[in-house]
């Protein structure tokens, strides 16, 4: 009998508030959600719906005001600062809209820098090759295009074999062609992961572009800090078929 797949990340009744002068802003307002190993989860919604806050919470970049977060069997709400850093170090890979590469290190060195954080990383050079940028290994970020920089950022995130890949608007600054290439790499990474099911990496992709949600296994729509809708993409496709 098949065992049901357990979620790798579970968020329950999550509340996150920010103070703005005398007002309190509830960026997350009782959000509950589960993320499963090996899935591509797209999170969409209007500006200010709490998408990025949600990403920051499950990546332990920020702490919940109320609620409960469990990741990979651990209660994340009770961790110390060091334990949270270790979680990000070993289990999470971030991909940002603005790439955030180290400008004075080459492409290869940027990937190697993150590889140095974990005991058993993938080969930085192999990672660059997998994103098609082995030839640009020695170039500095300032010498590369936006799409190339984002690919390096992906390689950097993946080199440490994260179990949770968090991408915040990874294609927002890219043209259509580059965006498709980037999304293809992300999809390939998740789909072709040879790990066993419960150890497969998951991708949480935050985007305001509804077209991009077509690559996901599930789509979460957020509104006012809550999940307003969850659905399966009606017209799923690969990255190469996307058009916007």
């Amino acid at each position: 009998m098949l065992q049901p797949i357990q979620p790798c990340v579970r968020l329950k009744d999550a509340v996150k508030t920010f103070s703005s002068g005398t007002d309190i802003v509830r960026a997350l307002d009782g959000l509950s959600l589960e993320i499963y190993p090996g899935e591509i989860l797209a999170v969409t919604g209007e500006s200010g719906s709490g998408k990025s806050t949600f990403l920051n919470i499950i990546g332990c970049m920020d702490e919940l005001t109320e609620g409960h977060l469990e990741a990979f069997g651990r209660d994340m709400t009770k961790l110390s600062g060091k334990e949270r850093t270790d979680y990000r170090r070993l289990d999470v890979g971030f991909i940002f809209q603005d790439y955030h590469l180290v400008p004075e290190l080459s492409a290869l060195e940027n990937v190697a820098l993150i590889a140095s954080l974990v005991p058993d990383p993938l080969s930085p050079r192999d990672m660059l090759r997998s994103v098609g940028l082995e030839a640009e290994s020695n170039r500095l970020p300032g010498q590369l295009s936006g799409g190339q920089q984002q690919k390096i950022a992906i390689a950097r995130a993946l080199v440490k074999r994260p179990r949770l890949l968090l991408a915040d608007e990874p294609t927002a600054a890219l043209d259509l062609g580059s965006a498709k290439e980037v999304l293809s790499i992300l999809i390939r990474t998740i789909r072709e992961n040879p790990e066993s099911t419960d150890k497969k990496a998951s991708l949480v992709l935050v985007t305001h572009n509804r077209e991009i949600t077509r690559i996901a296994d599930r789509v979460i729509v957020m509104r006012s800090g809550r999940v307003s809708d969850i659905y399966l993409p009606p017209d799923p496709c690969g990255a190469e078929a996307l058009e916007w």
Binding site: G59, T85, R89, V92, D98, H100, V102, L117, R156
Partner: peptide
């Protein structure tokens, strides 16, 4: 600032 935040996000202590 931003780079430090990125490094923290990456897991640097």
């Amino acid at each position: 600032r931003t780079r430090i935040g990125t490094a923290k996000a990456m897991g640097f202590r």
